[in-house]
Amino acid sequence: MSDFSSARTEDSDLALARDGDDAAFTRLVEPLRRELHAHCYRMLGSTHDADDALQDALLRAWRGLVRFEGRSSLRSWLYTVATHTCLDTVERRGRRAMPVDLGPSSDRAVVGEAPLADVAWLGPYPDAGLAEGPAAPDARYEQREAVELAFVAALQHLPGNQRAALLLFEVLGFSAAEIATTMDTSVASVNSALQRARRIVAEKVPSRSQQRTLRKVGDARLREIVAGYSSALESGDAETLVALLTEDVTWSMPPLTHWYHGLAAVTDFAVRVPLTDCPGWRNLPTSANGQPTVASYIWHEGLGGYLPWALNVLTLRGDRVCEITSFIGPDHFVPFGLPASLPLRERDT
């Protein structure tokens, strides 16, 4: 379909939607739903919060469509509505945390730790629907770069207005003037917020993104790393696991508060807990936050199968794993479309 025909179709659907045609409204927003959801995740650090925020934002847009005057694109207007919805959520709930935010690392394995339920934890994001490259010509970040764990975790250290300004400018390619209109403020205030936000993010995010690292590593080596991690976990092979890691590797497991830094501490934890004390593992490769991920299922004797346990998001430096973030809990598996259980294999009997 030509750009002219597409514009006419959008204008027609917009007129119908303003008259109360919800099917026309659905046709208007459906092509933008995935990128709006990713924006909500970047703002909020939680897939579940992003679900709620997007639903709320589209309801607000539907009810307020008669006030959309067409001075900006529909896409820009929907981002304005979604951003304000997320800012309301940030004001109510505050920021999401990672274990590293709560205290120093542990030198030795902590066994039998109870999850900390009163902390709003950062969660993983299913990135299968994200496109490659930037969301707009003027954007600094690629779409997948902008959901990488380090970037989203850094955003959580920003006040809501700085978070929104940085995302709208660097990820979505809005101008400072457009952001000022979106956030009902001045261009000077936007530029000030951007300056402060960039400084904090630069302190917390590596200069080389995971997307650049993964492209340099290559698909074949990446498959070897994921397969090696999975095999080591399933067979209890500490030597294979350690060979994949950098000297300064970290391992964290939200909602557990203890985390480990350095090869000695990580090895002690790995040997004492997942490689020894756990009853058995099966793993599936997947992708979260634009990064290689291993979905780990743990053996459940009573059910005679493997149940969801954690999504292990791997962060690479060169062709070694420098960070493992294990998001524990079966609820994380649902947005990824992963199986609710895995059966016993012949080799397990």
Score class of each variant (00 low, 15 high):
114 A>I: 08
127 D>T: 10
165 A>E: 05
161 N>E: 12
113 E>N: 00
113 E>M: 03
99 P>L: 02
98 M>I: 08
100 V>H: 08
107 D>K: 07
178 E>K: 15
102 L>D: 01
115 P>R: 09
169 F>W: 06
108 R>I: 00
171 V>K: 10
120 A>G: 02
178 E>Y: 04
105 S>T: 07
121 W>R: 07
171 V>L: 04
179 I>A: 04
137 P>F: 09
138 D>S: 15
107 D>L: 08
148 E>G: 09
98 M>G: 00
112 G>C: 12
189 S>L: 01
181 T>V: 01
192 S>E: 09
178 E>Q: 15
95 R>A: 14
155 L>M: 14
139 A>T: 11
184 D>V: 05
176 A>T: 13
103 G>L: 11
139 A>G: 12
123 G>H: 07
107 D>V: 03
175 S>M: 08
117 A>K: 11
187 V>L: 00
132 E>L: 12
144 R>H: 12
120 A>S: 14
104 P>T: 03
153 A>N: 08
184 D>H: 13
139 A>N: 08
151 F>C: 01
99 P>R: 11
112 G>S: 10
112 G>M: 09
120 A>P: 02
188 A>W: 00
176 A>L: 02
97 A>W: 12
108 R>D: 06
172 L>C: 02
136 A>E: 13
100 V>A: 15
136 A>N: 13
98 M>A: 13
103 G>Q: 12
188 A>V: 08
148 E>D: 11
189 S>A: 15
106 S>H: 13
136 A>R: 15
95 R>S: 15
183 M>R: 06
140 R>A: 14
97 A>S: 14
153 A>E: 05
106 S>V: 03
164 A>Q: 11
117 A>P: 06
174 F>I: 01
126 P>Q: 09
144 R>Y: 03
